[in-house]
Amino acid sequence: MNETFDFQVVDTIITELGCKQSAIIAILQSIQEHYRYLPKEIFPYLAKKLSVSEAKIYSVATFYENFSLEPKGKYVIKVCDGTACHVRKSIPILEKLRKELGLSETKHTTDNLTFTVETVSCLGACGLAPVLTVNDKVYPAMTPDKAAELLNELKEEE
């Protein structure tokens, strides 16, 4: 166990949402909202608190795509690669972001945990393609240059 992990946060979430199996998804969502991912330390702890197997909690966490077992950056950038965005050249945007941040297909998050770049199948804004989101805020009609400008703006906010 990581000695610096604060289980009080988890206890507060469990108290608010209820110490029951039916609350597993809501509890995991709240934990992820707090830490920006699901730390491995929570699985045995939650299993004991909720009287369920660690495997059950882990299976819920890995079944839903929105849950992450890896730390994510402060800014999560999702580049759409659905058909409309792909046809309108979303891949050069993705490549530009990765190049600017020193990321790759296998490395999604910067070492300082500021940026995470992911691809998604569809953001549901096909008429605005190509699209990306930063922490769920939609940026339409992107180009590689506009994406680099957006990155610079976000870096200045730091």
Rank of each mutant, 00 (worst) to 15 (best):
M1T: 09
T4K: 15
F5N: 08
D6Q: 11
V9H: 07
V10C: 00
I13F: 05
E16F: 07
L17D: 05
C19W: 01
C19Y: 01
A23C: 07
I27T: 08
I27S: 05
I27E: 04
Q32W: 07
Q32D: 07
Y35L: 04
Y37T: 06
Y37I: 04
L38W: 04
F43V: 03
Y45R: 09
Y45T: 08
K48S: 13
L50D: 06
S53H: 06
A55S: 14
V60H: 08
F63A: 14
Y64H: 14
E65K: 14
S68N: 12
E70P: 08
E70R: 15
P71S: 11
P71E: 15
G73E: 03
I77W: 03
V79P: 04
D81S: 14
G82T: 06
G82A: 06
A84R: 13
H86E: 12
R88L: 11
R88G: 00
K89R: 11
K89Y: 12
S90G: 03
S90P: 09
E95P: 00
K96N: 11
K99N: 13
L103Q: 01
T106W: 00
T106H: 09
H108V: 09
L113P: 08
V117P: 02
T119E: 10
V120C: 13
V120L: 03
C122P: 02
L123S: 06
A125G: 12
C126M: 05
A129T: 07
V134C: 05
N135F: 05
A141W: 14
A141M: 11
P144R: 08
D145W: 02
K146I: 07
A147E: 02
L151M: 04
